[in-house]
């Protein structure tokens, strides 16, 4: 059974159809990269998975369970999310950002939460920044805290919503390195990103979304080398050029 199954999902905002009949399935340890032009519905699809947005039609299953019937807080504990704008809690230190979910949702004690948070900050290379506040961190550091915050909840699946788009070019590498580590470690990840280098090296599947529909989906070699659709070739070609 797949870990995540998205079945014929439709979503519209008013008259605008953002997702149309989108279906995909991911197994445990899969790293799925979604690419597509802006406005293609990538972020909406991601937000449907942890129900920040509700689908209009279709169904999404996590571990065989229809997510619409689940308690949304429970779902979100099991599905972590990393945001484009980091969205670190501005009033809490890096450590405090990680511990909030641990104490309030997992109901760990303060000391347990603290040691666990320290462990995960260490894993993203920020053990020394535990007491820094978001405004004292660089963009890359912020995003790594964001990843540690999601990771510490021990999620089954991690969603990445353009995690490097808001970063200065020289800071992108440190975030991608953490993501690649995670992928190697067997984390199941659904990523919206334009980083083709990451897609090539870490992705198990690439999905090309355009106009709310899946145009093409397959392993990286297939999409990069022998795409079925001309549109895929053009788009990926542009992205690869840009990344160079």
């Amino acid at each position: 059974m797949s870990l995540l199954e998205i079945e014929d999902v439709d979503k519209s905002y008013g008259d605008e159809e953002v997702l149309h009949d989108v279906s995909l399935a991911m197994d445990q340890r899969d790293v799925d990269v979604i690419v597509g032009p802006s406005g293609s519905g990538k972020s909406t699809l991601l937000r449907c998975v942890n129900r920040l947005t509700e689908v209009d039609d279709g169904a999404i299953y996590l571990d065989g369970e229809e997510i619409h019937g689940m308690d949304e807080n429970d779902l979100r504990r099991r599905v972590g999310m990393v945001f484009q704008d980091f969205n670190l809690f501005a009033h809490r230190s890096a450590l405090g950002n990680v511990t909030l979910g641990l104490t309030e949702v997992l109901e760990l004690s303060e000391t347990e939460a603290k040691s666990r948070a320290e462990e995960f900050l260490g894993r993203v290379g920020l053990a020394d920044q535990a007491d820094s506040y978001p405004s004292q961190l660089s963009g890359g550091q912020k995003q790594r805290v964001g990843i540690a915050r999601a990771l510490a909840m021990d999620p089954d699946l991690l969603l990445f919503d353009e995690p490097t788009s808001a970063l200065d070019p020289e800071l992108i590498g440190e975030v991608l390195a953490v993501m690649e580590d995670l992928a190697e470690g067997g984390m199941t990840m659904l990523c919206v990103t334009h980083e083709m280098g990451f897609a090539r090296s870490a992705a198990s599947t690439i999905t090309f979304l355009d106009g709310g529909r899946i145009v093409e989906r397959g392993p990286p070699e297939q999409l990069f080398e022998t795409p079925e659709k001309e549109r895929t070739r053009t788009f990926l070609g542009q992205l690869t050029d840009l990344n160079r």
Partner: peptide, 15 residues
């Protein structure tokens, strides 16, 4: 306060 703050909190499972 930025909407993202609430979303981030909800995303870790807070009510």
């Amino acid at each position: 306060i930025d909407e993202g703050q609430l979303e981030a909190a909800r995303s870790v499972g807070l009510t």
